[in-house]
Design a protein around this nucleic acid. Structure first.
Lengths: 191, 191
DNA sequence: ACCTGAACACCGTTCAAGT
DNA sequence: ACCTGAACACCGTTCAAGT
């Protein structure tokens, strides 16, 4: 990679971070290129797809969250670790509006540039879930995919302007569905 | 309303139903006009905004769901009524992909053409919730807004291709968060 | 190697001109 | 009253031409 290319690359990324913070995940690529003072074709050369751009944009944060899961695994009780990691994930996806939709769809598409990063997040969560399930504090009939799904759904919801103020409570409700600190009465009856 | 206008109106609506079924809620207005054999400006004349179009498109279904809530209120036990109505709502929003995002944002925006219809759905749900809460089968710390939110979040999630197969189970999990057929142990500890 | 401008086929909005 | 085509300002994709 040539020096000018490397410089363009990181400059585009920095600008993209700002524009995305302003306009969310469906910000205009053209606008990013314009603000970066670079041709649109140049942006597309470095990041051939929107997901490729977001892969670079989110990698740092998502890697940190994956690592955080590992730390929590040794530093906290299984249920606390699961809940506080879940919290951090929700808070993160909320920080870039619309990014959760990108992640949810990348999670299901092995061809996506974001797939690997999402898969890493996924399995980090799955491990925390399994640990809490072994202890008996997380409901047994849940897997990593569903944990990822519930996180995404909650993240999506609190990303809607009107629901953001209720984030804490909605988080609490969602958490109560994942944990099982209650004698398991017959809940199927009602469904 | 002139005869030709009325004819255009209903024809556009019929075509829109097909196109939206194919391409989801962010289908191209231009494409709908094209397929209806009508100028784009004509479509915009009848439905000045995408939400106005969807208001007409969804009104029938949503009114039926509002009415259904009323029926359930007399025909079923409070918890069963709440759960089965919730189920129907989720099934409905899943039937038109992307429509739940439109509804969730309209729900918060009094200026939206979809606002009134969403508000009706909202309050129908709120009544079912309240009824179950009075009976003690739905968790007390929930209101109509949050019920609408959880419905939207679940609808959004099962609208994502990879999560659709898990709809039943995810519905079950979400339901368990809304109902309270369990002695209310201290769940805050973990959060 | 890397960048760029321009052409392309789209999109929704707006409005003067037609019947 | 109602419809329409066209102009406008956007979008992402693609590629031949430049350094």
């Amino acid at each position: 990679m040539r020096a000018d290319a490397r410089k363009n690359y990181s400059h585009i990324l920095a600008v993209a971070r700002d524009v995305v913070a302003e306009h969310g995940a469906d910000a205009s690529m053209r606008d990013i290129a314009r603000r970066a003072g670079v041709g649109l074709a140049t942006l597309l050369r470095h990041f051939p797809t929107r997901e490729a751009l977001f892969e670079a944009l989110l990698r740092t944060n998502l890697d940190a969250l994956t690592e955080k899961a590992g730390e929590l695994e040794t530093s906290s009780s299984p249920d606390e670790a699961l809940v506080s990691w879940f919290r951090e994930m929700v808070a993160f996806v909320q920080s870039y509006s619309g990014v959760v939709a990108l992640m949810a769809s990348a999670h299901e598409d092995p061809d996506s540039a974001l797939y690997a990063t999402c898969a890493a997040v996924h399995s980090a969560g799955a491990r925390l879930l399994l640990r809490a399930q072994t202890e008996g504090t997380a409901r047994a009939d849940l897997d990593g995919v569903e944990l990822f799904g519930l996180m995404s759904a909650l993240g999506w919801l609190v990303g809607q302007p009107g629901f953001a103020p209720r984030e804490d409570h909605l988080f609490h409700v969602m958490t109560s569905a994942i944990l099982t600190n209650r004698p398991c009465t017959d809940i199927k009856k009602a469904a």
